[in-house]
């Protein structure tokens, strides 16, 4: 099913631009979660609830557009593994935007994820 883009089924390493696209996609995906949380914090079915829910849906649609382009540039296993970075974004948004308490487990978990991302990305063919 896969079409190798290089000799002997070994596609070349994705470019820096591809990695940028990958990470912009997940940053946008993390914003979907932020918008979802913001919508949930509004009164149920109030006008601002619908406003944020609409933003969320539009952002999700934009993410879906980008994701298809990401999948064209990476193996599925690599692209999906990088989704772990959303944990790190969640941590940043939770602290910056929502003033949530960050636990040691959160920090250790995020550090493990970042270590995993470095290892996975060093193998991104």
């Amino acid at each position: 099913m896969t079409k190798p883009t290089g000799p002997a089924g070994a596609p070349s390493r994705p470019s820096a631009g591809s990695f940028l696209l990958l990470h912009v996609s997940f940053l946008i995906y993390s914003l979907v979660i932020v918008l979802s949380k913001t919508a949930a914090m509004q009164g149920w079915l109030t006008p601002t609830f619908f406003l944020f829910a609409l933003f969320e849906l539009l952002t999700l649609g934009f993410y879906a557009l980008l994701w298809q382009q990401v999948l064209g540039r990476f193996k599925l296993v690599t692209a999906y593994a990088n989704k772990g970075v959303v944990v790190v974004w969640n941590l940043i948004w939770a602290a910056l935007l929502f003033g949530e308490q960050i636990t040691p487990e959160n920090l250790i978990g995020a550090a493990l994820v970042v270590a995993g991302l470095v290892v996975v990305s060093s193998d991104a063919r």
């Binding site: 296993v77 772990g84 944990v87 941590l91 487990e105 978990g109 994820v113 995993g116 996975v120 193998d123």
Partner: peptide, 18 residues
């Protein structure tokens, strides 16, 4: 290497939510 990286990510996700 991919398996090792994903193992780290999965461990991180579990610890993060622990």
């Amino acid at each position: 290497r991919l398996v090792a990286g994903i193992a780290l990510i999965v461990a991180g996700v579990i610890v993060f939510g622990s």
